[in-house]
Write a protein that binds this DNA or RNA. Structure first.
Lengths: 342, 342
DNA sequence: GTTGGGTGTCAAAGCGCTTTGAAATTTCTG
DNA sequence: CAGAAATTTCAAAGCGCTTTGACACCCAAC
């Protein structure tokens, strides 16, 4: 069933039917009713490709999904997508996901944009001096960045959380509890958020004249396994750290296992603060020792970014170009006063 | 830059350029070279919407993502998508994801299909007597189902794992170890895999004249939290089960916490076998007591389904319509002989 | 020297929609 | 009740691509 058939069925021109469907004022209410009725009966749906060709708009947001054999999928990706989707469904938008080798993301993004398949772009997993920014600017297509790119002029539309502030505050709390030996379990070091979190820790420590040694930092994929390995390394250091900052609750899971296996007690021998993206599968309050966290909902960020993107496409703006969300520091039982020097 | 401009630039007709680009034989090799060279220089990309309108093909796979405020995202979704993507990127296919309220999936699927935006469909989260199957059959668009629908004639193209066999085997192992009191922590009970896993357990028990009591079964979202709650319930039963079957490693995480909190030892007081979808974030071999699992890679399933889908669209078939993958039973330390009756 | 079969190229139609500019119809005004 | 204004409908062009059918050209064959 296409427009032509439908209009013949109704004895109207395609123009009138199209206008009736798209809410134009210059069509009789009675006619509109008839058209709507016929649509219901026939199940007619406009062909999106044709619509897009004619209007240049397609009601879709494009994003690149890094993937390759051996490339680990990321829990956070799904959660964020759920947020985007929650908003998209309200506006009848959909997503076009272009899978791409992680090494080929700039090109994949360009292909996606030029393909004419999408109205707006979303990008994430930002790196320091991210080469995608220049590409996006040259594109004249709306986009929003999740995160920022350390070292690049912050003149692009983004939504980010205050990673530096979060880890600064967390570190301060641990300092106030008397800790002096710190370690940081971070995400991959080329990623922007990892850089900023490290800086947050370092600057809080610097205020007390402390430094973060190289061997008290780990940069790795944020999995259970890497958490375990990193913590095992920390625990074997001659000057064992007592305060651990951790970039993810998933990673914290492995870290805590290492603490337990070493016969140490969380919240007493070792204090730990993890960043919580509010993943439904893993709640920090349900850990056997509930986790102190810096919290910011990834999903909420997804909803907001979708709002901005869709709003821009629909000219519903203006939206703020830059948003920086504060995180919450939620104190639970995994943090406690520094143990007495033994 | 579009075809017309490109052809004018080259002094050729659109036809010739189009043919050169699409590898048709009736074009001079020298001409083809010239065209390819120009494409490289100008960065020309064909407009996908126009291509799709002209050919009816778009190089895309459609899927519906259930989402709504309050609807929990699912770790497995991201992992599966990574598998789909891994294969799709090899064929320059992309995905169109239509977010939909979980209650509206049939309609969303229909919209997606009729929109003309996709060449093939993929569906998952199958339920018993799933209403989407009838819809898909009426659609004349290729599709592959991940999972099956209990109670429906198995005459649709699917890829599933042998859930019943997996849990049957796991139960048999525990029976051989002398266990007699069983409990099952399952996924939501309307889902097909949950039904089949339960049946697997029940039939293995029946062979020994045992039954699975109602209070030894839990059906819930497969999260850490639900695992904790379910296990706590089991442990408070007057006749405490000693053998637990669990539908997910994420759920097992919470379950194990409950076991520890009760002062019991995994692999001694309580034996546990979980189903492992091979999620990169959570490896059963790294648990403090390594987990005995039934294993089947979700990601591999994604790759395979993408193969079938893309192959069908490209007429590269034929593919088997029904595939049932066996799972592996991998014995680690979380299972042991039934404790002596105290 | 005509016929026949490749080979390389082209103009034009068509995919299903939106939108422009004009025409037909109805309604209002003096 | 004529003429203007407003309302409703329409035919046709255009979005960027693929594909059909035709055309010109060249070389081998009779």
């Amino acid at each position: 069933m296409n427009l032509k058939q439908l209009s013949e069925l109704l004895g109207l021109s395609q123009t009138t039917v199209s206008r009736a469907l798209n809410g134009y004022p210059e069509v009789n209410e009675a006619t509109r009713e008839r058209v709507l009725q016929a649509v219901k009966e026939t199940g007619y749906r406009p062909n999106k490709a044709a619509q897009r060709l004619a209007t240049g708009k397609a009601g879709s947001i494009g994003l690149v999904m890094p993937t390759a054999p051996g490339h680990q999928s990321d829990v956070h990706f799904g959660e964020f997508l759920a947020g985007l989707g929650e908003e998209a469904v309200r506006h009848d938008f959909h997503f076009v996901i272009m899978p791409s080798d992680p090494d080929d993301e700039v090109a994949a993004l360009r292909r996606l944009a030029i393909s004419g398949n999408v109205d707006a772009l979303f990008i994430a997993y930002m790196r320091g001096h991210d080469p995608r920014l220049a590409m996006l600017k040259s594109l004249s297509m709306p986009y929003v960045v999740h995160g920022r790119s350390f070292g690049a002029e912050p003149d692009y539309p983004y939504l980010d959380i205050d990673n530096e502030g979060a880890f600064y505050d967390a570190t301060r709390l641990l300092l106030q509890l008397g800790h002096t030996r710190f370690a940081l379990m971070n995400g991959p070091m080329h990623l922007d958020f990892a850089i900023r979190r490290r800086n947050g820790v370092i600057s809080a420590l610097a205020e007390r004249g402390l430094t973060l040694e190289e061997d008290c930092m780990s940069h790795a994929l944020m999995t259970d396994e890497q958490g375990l390995l990193a913590m095992e390394r920390f625990l074997q250091l001659p000057e064992r750290p007592t305060a651990i900052l951790c970039s993810s609750t998933v990673m914290a899971l492995g870290a805590i296992r290492a603490v337990n296996q070493a016969g140490l007690r969380l919240g007493e021998d070792i204090s730990l603060i993890a960043h919580d993206d509010v993943l439904p599968l893993l709640k920090p309050e349900n850990f056997s020792v509930p986790l102190t966290t810096t919290r910011s909902s990834l999903r909420a960020a997804g909803v907001r970014i979708a709002q901005r993107l869709i709003g821009t496409v629909k000219q519903a703006g203006p939206f703020p170009e830059q948003e920086l969300w504060k995180t919450e520091l939620i104190v639970r039982a995994s943090t406690g006063p520094a143990p007495q020097q033994s």
